[in-house]
Each structure stands twice: as structure tokens, then as C-alpha cells.
Simulated assay, not measured.
Amino acid sequence: MLGNIASPNAASGTPTVKGNFTLYTLVGYDNYDPTALFAESIGKWNGGQYGSNGPANDNDDFMTITWPNGYVLTSSTVFGDCSGPYKKDEAYSSVVWGFGEESGEVILASNGRNDNSSGTRKWVSKYVHTWAETVPSFNISLTDVGITLTNSSASWQIASSLIY
């Protein structure tokens, strides 16, 4: 099961806002198996102009989620107001999805399990918006997805997190 926003066992992080775009992270666990968790990166365009402050849909945008150390990412998908979603990269605890963005809400839903976690449990979501031809590069490590924007005048990035 990918994500369940209505779950009473879920928490949402503080939203991050850039222009007309809001990004937040939601995490929860399964009532029947507390070692099985879900996490969602949720982005929403709140109207606005096209280009740097609104959806362009001519170039792909990207969304990531990274799970804490000691968790394994078992599945993921992107749905909502987007077109042509595809998995760009994946590692043990992180995933990167690309898609054509549209006005409205897009969700990167993921499932995972606690393999051997200890210490702080922090999930991190990132979103890269592009409005001209540019392809960011992604560097996935055990605890993070590093993003390099090669044409920073045609893209921006924001991040959101949740300690759960």
C-alpha cells in the first residue's frame, strides 16, 4: 500500500514555500506492522505565472525523498497533477522521480521498513523546478540526495523535512 494520508498514525512536517509552490513531507506507519512505514513528498502549485514562479511543463521537474539511516525504501510512485512520471534514480534509502509538472498537487509516495534504525529519524523531501532546458545532476549517498543545478538561472530547488 502506497501512502495513506488519512492515517491517524501520520505526521506532517512544516511546509517550505518558494513563490507559488509549497513542499512538505508526510510520514506514517502501518497500524498492523509498525515497522512498515510510508512517506510522501507533497508539492503544490498555488496558481501564479508560468516560468520561474509557476509550472512550465516544457521541461521536467524532479522530486526526491530520502529515508533515515537504518530504513530501506521498498517501493515508490508519483501521481497527481503531472505527466509522464518516471523513476530517474534509486538507492537503498532514496529515490528521484522526474515528471512534467502541471498546476495543482503532485505526490511522491513511498513505502519502506525499519531494518536497523537508531537515533534521529529524519525524512527529507526535495523538489527541483525547471523552466528552461536544464537537467540537474543527482548524487545519492546513504543519507542524502545531493543536487547540482548546472543552469541555476533556469531552475531552483527547495527542501522539506520531518523528524518522526
Score class of each variant (00 low, 15 high):
G3Y: 09
I5Y: 08
I5F: 10
A6T: 12
A11E: 13
A11R: 14
S12L: 09
G13Q: 09
T14K: 15
N20L: 09
T22S: 05
L23M: 13
G28A: 01
D30R: 07
N31I: 09
Y32C: 07
P34L: 04
P34F: 04
A36K: 15
L37E: 05
F38L: 10
E40H: 08
E40G: 07
W45R: 08
Q49F: 14
N53S: 14
P55T: 02
A56M: 09
D61G: 03
M63P: 01
I65L: 10
T66Y: 00
Y71A: 06
V78S: 02
F79S: 00
G80K: 05
D81M: 12
C82F: 11
K87M: 05
K88G: 01
K88T: 09
K88M: 02
D89M: 06
E90W: 08
V95M: 02
V96T: 00
G98A: 12
F99G: 02
G100F: 13
S103C: 00
S103P: 14
E105F: 09
I107V: 14
I107K: 04
I107T: 06
I107Q: 03
S110H: 07
S110V: 08
N114P: 03
N114V: 00
D115R: 13
D115I: 15
N116W: 09
S117H: 07
S118A: 08
W123C: 05
S125P: 04
K126N: 05
Y127R: 03
Y127S: 08
E133D: 15
T134L: 10
S137H: 03
S141I: 00
D144I: 05
G146D: 07
I147T: 09
I147V: 13
I147H: 10
S153E: 15
S155L: 05
Q157V: 11
I158D: 03
A159E: 13
S161L: 13
I163A: 15
